[in-house]
């Protein structure tokens, strides 16, 4: 699925990265808890989050995510958008909630990312 299709499907506004909307994403990860994003073992996924803090974008950058889709109509502050722009991470924002957003994208074929298994952590 291309990012422009993600935007269309979720009626999302593109906050930055309009020129990158041809980018393909085939996996999605929904989370507000950023440590769960840090245990994804794949790249180029769509990060779906209700967080509009700078950390959401920085986590996406560190994990080589393809884009960030912000849910629930939240809009990050200008410095966060500017940072995403500079980091080359498209930022999209939808009015829809996390549940509906994940539901729509999943039903259109976006697949879940794989995570590091919790059992692997056993100290």
């Amino acid at each position: 699925m291309r990012l422009c299709e993600v935007a269309e499907l979720t009626q999302a506004e593109v906050l930055t990265g309009k020129e990158l909307l041809d980018r393909e994403v085939d996996k999605g990860c929904g989370a507000d808890l950023l440590s769960d994003v840090l245990s994804v073992v794949e790249e180029n996924f769509l990060l779906i989050t209700g967080m509009v803090t700078p950390q959401a974008v920085r986590v996406a950058e560190v994990m080589n995510a393809a884009a960030v889709l912000i849910v629930r109509g939240k809009c990050p502050q200008d410095p966060v958008i500017a940072y995403a722009d500079e980091a080359g991470i498209p930022l999209l924002a939808t009015q829809k909630g996390m549940f509906e957003t994940c539901g729509l994208l999943y039903s259109r074929g976006l697949r879940p990312t794989r995570f590091r298994r919790v059992s692997e952590y056993a100290g």
Partner: peptide
Amino acid sequence: LGFGAGMGIPNMEK
């Protein structure tokens, strides 16, 4: 703020 799930040290170690 999205922190404090208790996976920090385990994730570093892993």
